[in-house]
């Protein structure tokens, strides 16, 4: 503040912070706290997930066979790759290679879209067969009590995750715009770094969902 040495305040420094480091650290801490709330949000569903298989292990096992492991695996690779490209985008902006960074961001967006397309095919196949949650469940080929619960859990978990992928895509889109406008550089890339953290979380949640839903037993 008064009398400290950074004479010119950089444009990205908000008035209530005294120096860029304080602002960047605050942003980072805020983001980690936000990620924590996200983990807890999914935590509720993970608890539901542990309760129901414990009651009906056979049903859960039988029902999970109706998920397409190949598509699930494919999607896992797609998301992990997008995490890598996201990290590379951040690395590039740190080195002030803006064009490269933009290219990586575009690839990240495309991979995210690919994930959703695959998910769309999986969902539409299930809807077609009537493997739907709760009272919409009409499929008859699964042995065990209340197989619709499996699909309730499946759709709630992957659905919520899908919403997060969409949210992540819009934030990546926003960062992409800002990078193109030249607002981010090696001096100030906090928004991209935060977006990256969020995107890794989305990826991480899928890495938990995939074995829990597709690879039971």
């Amino acid at each position: 503040m008064d009398g400290h040495e950074h004479s010119a305040h950089p444009a990205h420094l908000a008035h209530h912070f005294s120096e860029p480091a304080q602002q960047a650290e605050s942003a980072k801490m805020g983001m980690w706290l936000f990620l924590l709330t996200e983990v807890l949000l999914f935590g509720g569903l993970f608890v539901a997930y542990t309760v129901f298989p414990a009651w009906n292990p056979d049903m859960f096992f039988n029902a999970h066979k109706h998920l397409n492991v190949y598509l699930g695996t494919l999607n896992t690779f797609v998301l992990i790759s997008s995490s890598v490209t996201m990290a590379l985008a951040i690395r590039s902006i740190q080195l002030d290679r803006r064009d490269v960074s933009i290219r990586y961001l575009v690839v990240t967006l495309l991979l995210a879209a690919a994930f959703l397309v695959v998910k769309y095919f999986e969902y539409s196949h299930k809807i077609h067969l009537g493997q739907l949650p709760g009272k919409f469940y009409t499929f008859t080929g699964i042995e065990g009590t209340n197989p619709h619960v499996f699909f309730s859990v499946y759709f709630a978990m992957t659905g919520l995750h899908g919403v997060h992928v969409l949210a992540g895509m819009s934030v990546i889109g926003w960062v992409l715009m800002r990078t193109r406008r030249g607002e981010l550089s090696s001096e100030y890339y906090t928004p991209m770094e935060m977006t990256g953290l969020y995107w890794h979380l989305v990826d991480m949640i899928w890495i938990f969902l995939f074995p829990l839903l597709y690879l039971i037993g």
Binding site: T37, E38, L40, L41, F42, G43, G44, L45, A48, F52, W55, N56, P133, G134, K135, F136, T145, N146, H148, V149, S152, V153, F155, A156, L160
Partner: peptide, 26 residues
Amino acid sequence: PVLGITMVLLILERVAGIGIFDPAMG
């Protein structure tokens, strides 16, 4: 956040009858 997910599940229960909390559906 846990309240958040609980409310979401309650809403899904009413809209889609997902049955997580409904004894009649397991």
